[in-house]
Design a protein around this nucleic acid. Structure first.
Lengths: 223, 223
DNA sequence: CAAGTGATTATTGTTAACAATAATTTTCTG
DNA sequence: CAGAAAATTATTGTTAACAATAATCACTTG
């Protein structure tokens, strides 16, 4: 099992809240679980910490991050700034072909949702934002947005609980594409702002404290 | 010598263009230069790579990054988006005391420049942007901006050469503070946009190929 | 029993030796 | 001598053993 695989599995376990905030990530235990050497786990944990999905305290270890409410709000504000800028620049250069691609994605997402495959619908919903970013063609901002997207599920989980999942409205995404097609970047930005505010406004105080199983949790596939 | 010290010295060597883009950073050599173990250098290099100041190719090694022109332009576009957002939110909440602090900084920068201490003037000029960010009080965006600020000297060096240093105009910084004082975030943003465009527009094609000395270069203090 | 104290265990951090790979030099051959 | 093949060297990557630190437990004592 490769290093990237291990990272992906742990990240997914955090996103699926099978590893609640505060859970300690022990090196030897993880090494045994994934059948890799401790050095590999160490590198993975370093990456996790750098992406702010985990905290590290010297000589103590790394734990799944517990983002504060402020961090959650900062995250959404940053996201608005970045997506706004990308939409404005994209609106003046988007092609008919790209519009078509976006509409196709939205349609597929809707189908999945109606067919009850909400997990795939959510994935497509996230991918919508990433595809917009790739079309805006700014690698720096795309990188920042990916950072934010990676961190967002954790803050939603921490402050909204399970009810916070699947918050993107297909309808709003659709309106953004409409605005882009009309070359109206300002309007697209406004819709995006509202879209993100829908989520942001629901964030409230509520810490959650966990227990830890690690072995079983990490390898379980979310059905 | 601590790990952070080593990182700082190498970063500074890149910024001062004593380590030109493409220079190979050999682990054992660096370890000897700084008198630390190879493992420590390894961790430092990992951090350098993650901050995009260096590239890594498996089994070959890490080299000082050679940012492309597109990367440079993307960097400035992202910076505009972030600083704009921060200025807009800061304009409606900045205090008289903070205005005073900013004016004091600008004054000091001007003095340094007139006294010929251009190095300190440049440092203050950079710090101006960072202080604005801390006042805007968004940790996520502050982090992104710091990433950008760390990468900017390298792209300027690569594409403008030595003449590109010290590009921030004290006068423009001053105008931004004026706009903030009037609570006009939009105007402050416009000035900032122009300010950054002054730099961005000068970027042109021009690769630079280096040789490498490492030992002498890294420890030399820029007089 | 509560609180401290020392011993034990568990966990993270470091290092030196080894392995694997890439770069270089040497040697061979037409 | 040019070019390819082989041998050598240099460099990065991995690992297992050890060291240092923190957490836990058992024990004593007031």
């Amino acid at each position: 099992m490769s290093e990237d695989d291990v990272l992906r599995l742990i990240e997914q376990a955090v996103i699926d809240h099978r590893l609640p905030p505060g859970t300690k990530l022990k090196e030897v235990e993880l090494a045994q679980v994934f059948g890799v050497k401790r050095g590999a786990i160490r590198k993975v944990l370093t990456r996790l910490v750098h992406s702010r999905l985990a905290d590290q305290r010297p000589n103590i270890g790394v734990t799944v991050a517990k983002p504060s409410v402020k961090e959650a709000l900062d995250l959404f504000t940053a996201r608005r700034a970045i997506e706004r800028s990308m939409l404005v620049s994209l609106a003046v250069k988007i092609t008919a072909k790209q519009i078509k691609q976006l509409r196709k994605m939205l349609n597929e997402e809707l189908c999945c949702y109606q067919n009850g495959d909400s997990q795939r619908a959510t994935a497509l919903s996230v991918e919508f934002h990433q595809v917009l970013a790739s079309m805006a063609d700014n690698d720096v901002m795309t990188g920042f947005l990916n950072d934010i997207i990676r961190r967002t599920p954790l803050v939603i989980l921490t402050h909204l609980g399970d009810t916070g999942q699947n918050l993107c409205r297909n309808q709003e995404h659709s309106a953004i594409v409409d605005a882009l097609e009309n070359g109206d970047g300002e309007k697209a930005s406004q819709i995006m702002d509202q879209h993100l505010s829908h989520i942001e406004n629901r964030i409230r105080e509520e810490p959650e404290l966990p227990k830890s199983n690690l072995a079983a949790l990490l390898l379980k596939v979310p059905s």
